[in-house]
């Protein structure tokens, strides 16, 4: 069974992939067969449909989350012996005492630049979804059924296909600065400024402006997501609806606001929600391009920084909980949207 659990050769790897798919299909088939009876009670059906998901999520996400919440109330300290040195176990690790308190939260909320970090996070979670969705929507509407639609869509989609790490490389060649007199620019944005007779700007020098320039990178990536989903939604608007509106004399902007927007409402909510959560979690861009500048930090980058140091791991748990709380408004908004939809359905 080595080929399945530790494949080495190319053939084994492909074989193990096929086997994995087959196992999955067989297991799911068995489950569905068991609940497929028309007379099966709905709780059994729900268990069959949801069982695997619940197990996966409970083990993979819920349990670690509970542990994280638990840890966020913990602080640990070394046990100090009479010789003023830490006391060691037989395996040479240091004995620690754990106490439960609100110290992690206290240190987060008394952090002098917490307000700025929260502010930056809010900017990200508001600007990224709104702007990316707006751009994706406008673009999708304009190019809809135009001659170059496929090509035009691909252009906006390309950034989606690039990893966050790749994005940081790409944008270096946009934002890079050299303000030595007469030096070559290697960033196109600064070269552009030079061409029109201005001085180059250090885009990534920190502060609010840099946050905006980093948000632009995220918008650049995510507009493709918005465009793809919204474009598909626009195409799902029945021809008759549009025709009827046209007969009523709607055109241009009116058609857009009266017909298009309401028809794709739920797609808009989906896109906004997904992008907002993505923006809340985004740390790669800030980490890779922020030049260790605390003024552009967001909660997710603080979390990663704390998480990677043994001394601040508990602190990072508290930040993860804060992140969790920040997503609640989005959850509530979605639940309310769902309720509304339920009523009209």
């Amino acid at each position: 069974m080595d080929w399945l659990f530790s494949p080495v050769t190319a053939g084994d790897k492909i074989l193990s992939m096929i086997a994995a798919i087959v196992i999955f299909v067989v297991v799911m088939g068995a489950i569905l067969l068991a609940v497929g009876n028309e007379k099966a009670p709905s709780w059994l059906v729900a268990a069959g449909f949801l069982g695997p998901v619940v197990i996966f999520l409970a083990v993979g996400l819920v349990w670690p989350t509970l542990q994280t919440i638990w840890k966020s109330f913990q602080t640990t300290a070394n046990v100090i012996g009479p010789d003023n040195q830490p006391v060691r176990n037989p395996d040479f690790s240091i004995q620690k005492t754990t106490s439960f308190n609100f110290n992690n939260y206290k240190s987060i909320f008394t952090d002098s630049d917490l307000l700025r970090v929260l502010g930056n996070t809010l900017l990200w979670t508001i600007l990224v979804p709104l702007v990316a969705t707006a751009i994706g929507l406008v673009y999708a509407v304009i190019i809809d059924r135009s001659r170059f639609e496929k090509f035009a869509k691909t252009l906006i989609f390309i950034p989606m296909a690039i990893s966050m790490v790749g994005a940081a490389i790409i944008w270096r060649f946009v934002y890079a600065i050299n303000d030595a007199p007469g030096a070559n620019q290697i960033g196109i944005a600064n070269q552009f400024l030079v061409w029109i007779g201005l001085k180059p700007i250090n885009f990534l020098n920190g502060g609010l402006a840099t946050t905006f320039f980093l948000i632009i990178v995220m918008i650049w990536i995510q507009a493709g997501f918005a465009m793809t989903i919204l474009s598909a939604a626009i195409k799902a608007i029945p021809e008759d609806t549009i025709e009827a509106a046209k007969i009523d004399g709607a055109s241009g902007m009116k058609l857009f606001t009266r017909i298009t927007i309401p028809s794709i409402r739920s797609a808009l909510v989906v896109v906004l929600t997904t992008l907002a959560i993505g923006a809340l979690k985004a740390y790669d861009i800030v980490k890779a391009m922020g030049n260790s500048n605390p003024t552009v930090d967001v909660i997710a980058t603080r979390f990663i920084t704390y998480f990677n140091s043994a001394e601040t791991e508990n602190l990072s748990s508290a930040l993860a909980v804060v992140l969790f709380v920040m997503v609640l408004p989005i959850v509530v908004y979605n639940v309310r949207q769902m309720r509304k939809q339920e009523e009209t359905r």
Binding site: D2, W3, S6, T9, G11, D12, V22, I23, V27
Partner: peptide, 25 residues
């Protein structure tokens, strides 16, 4: 994975030739 194991074992029999190519084992 009761439902699947029998099937997987059949496959593994077919693939057992490859075991000798695994240096770690």
């Amino acid at each position: 994975i009761a439902a699947a194991s029998a099937f997987a074992l059949v496959i593994s029999a077919c693939g057992s030739d490859n075991n000798s190519a695994t240096p770690s084992s």
